[in-house]
């Protein structure tokens, strides 16, 4: 399971101020904590700074990379911020995100080609947000075909099937799970990720829905998630699910996690 740590995002409380003030210690501490908790990528998103986003992205990438060994997930809908982030990033970053919206696809692909990077591909196009499983599958496949045709390796693509709230459409969980299964079956090297917490928007006890959904989705082929790695319960569930799905030889990770106290949640 590839964990993308979501905590460095200026839309979260207190983060915009920390980035604006260029609070090195605060940001580095948050990055280190996520790496220690098991994040494979540290997401950096400073979109709310708008006109100052590009500069802030450069600072964030440099500041975080000073203290962590894992690569970063450079997160912005703004191609200029993605470009600047990639220019200063050392190693192979993950870009979040491209979509099948024509302009965004073309612009983001150009940047991807200039840098050796992986990419999150959102299953939406100029028709809008996906509604059914079929929408997600159709757009997901198109993105995979178009990206690989442009020279991006399947293993560098992370399809995001777009999580809508179960509170507004009670079938959407099933749609997402079906889409994950179909894409995972057809493209074995492609990764599937998602921003998980949207599933529980507008409902009580959100953590329970988030945690349950991640295990359901892993059972269908989800192999990455954009989550809070400092939530020990979700991390323990992911560890257990990996073991149960046969991704943990001799149950070594599970036993190790248990011995280090990570499953006492």
């Amino acid at each position: 399971m590839i964990i993308i740590g979501e905590l460095i995002n200026t839309s979260r409380e207190g983060l915009e101020e920390a980035v604006k003030n260029r609070d090195v210690e605060f940001i580095q501490d948050l990055a280190k904590q996520q790496e220690e908790a098991g994040a494979d990528y540290i997401d950096v998103n400073c979109g709310t700074l708008l006109k100052e986003e590009v500069e802030a992205m450069e600072w964030l990438v440099k500041t975080v990379q000073e203290v962590v060994d894992v690569p970063l997930c450079i997160d912005s809908p703004n191609p200029k911020a993605l470009k600047r982030g990639l220019e200063v990033h050392e190693g192979k970053a993950l870009v979040n995100s491209i979509s099948a919206e024509e302009d965004r696809f073309t612009e983001t692909l150009e940047i991807l080609k200039e840098h050796d990077a992986r990419v999150v591909a959102l299953t939406m196009d100029d028709e809008g947000m996906p509604k059914s499983a079929e929408d997600r599958i159709r757009v997901g496949k198109k993105l995979i075909e178009d990206l690989t045709a442009a020279g991006i390796a399947e293993a560098d693509i992370f399809v995001d099937p777009i999580i809508n709230p179960i509170g507004t459409d009670q079938q959407v969980g099933q749609y997402i799970l079906d889409a994950i299964a179909e894409i995972a079956n057809e493209y074995s090297d492609v990764h599937i990720t998602c921003g998980l917490s949207n599933i529980s928007h507008g409902l009580p006890q959100r953590h329970l829905l988030n945690r349950t959904f991640v295990t359901l989705a892993m059972g269908r082929g989800l192999d990455s998630a954009i989550i809070d790695p400092l939530d020990p319960k979700i991390m323990a569930l992911v560890t257990a699910a990996e073991t149960l799905l046969g991704h943990d030889q001799y149950c070594a990770n599970y036993i190790q996690a248990s011995k280090s106290g990570k499953l006492d949640v």
Binding site: P165, G167, T168, Q170, H201, G202, L203, P204
Partner: peptide
């Protein structure tokens, strides 16, 4: 006040 939730409002 978080006493009712989105599906209930719908």
């Amino acid at each position: 006040k978080n006493e009712m939730f989105v599906p209930e409002v719908l």
